[in-house]
Amino acid sequence: MAAARADPIMFSEFLQYLFTGITIGAIYALIALGFTLIYNASHVINFAQGEFLMIGGMATVSLTAMGVPMLLAIVLAVALAGLMGIALQRLAIAPAKDANVVTLIIITIGASIFIRGLAQLVWGKKYHVMPNFSGDEPIEVFGAVLNSQSLWVLGVGAVLVAVLVYFFTRTMTGKAILATSMNKDAARLVGIRTQMVLMLAFMVSALLGSIAGIVVAPITFTSYDIGIILGLKGFVAAAIGGLGSGVGAVVGGLALGVVEAMAAGYLSSDYKDAVAFSMILLVLFFMPRGLFGAKVVERV
């Protein structure tokens, strides 16, 4: 039992891994929420989700470099991402209505390569820095340090989740999205314009992604290709949590982040990603629909 006694250094190390994991996990969670939104509305896995993140970060950085005040730059960047979300749904997903799921996935992959290519043409290939929102001084807690930006990530993440919950349970539009995801035909019968709803889902998902991209940029830097791996991790988080479940996305994201950090800290940094991927397999073996995935009735 000696090991269980709180050795102060061991505890501060543990806390450090935890902070690291929760911060990065919160980012994964926000991306996973974006996946979830689009998945719920259209059953499409949007592989261009990471690009919204990139647009948010890159547009903010380039606008501020042009002398636009930070806050305005953020608003414009988020609006730009929202437009891209709408464009993605209108121009790429909607025209391919009778395409099957795999084809739709490939379309989103094509879209993500296209968007990344555009970003590279417009903004170049360099990594860019975004200053911390509130000072560089880290906060110390029991010997572990927390980047002040981590608090922003967590805070913004929490606010976004609260807004989403409110949106889906209290507003007509949100309820319409939910209704469409449950049964498109029935939703149409009760007068919901399902195409409009789909567009809205893509837009909200893009807004979410771009905000995540902005709050995280001071920690990760930003570049035209930052979306690839973060988007992928977001998908992983959404799958662990159970596709279509908002709670699942948040839990999945945090779990993935914490497992990665703990694996890097206690097991092997070489294999920390392998540990994370093994965790996914393990979760899926025992819970084939992720942690919180709904049982979907298969149409025969």
């Binding site: 390569i113 296209f114 590279q120």
Partner: peptide
């Protein structure tokens, strides 16, 4: 190259 590749892939599949 990248823009064109993405565009061709997307359009073909659409």
């Amino acid at each position: 190259e990248m823009v064109l590749f993405g565009l061709i892939l997307m359009l073909t599949m659409i």
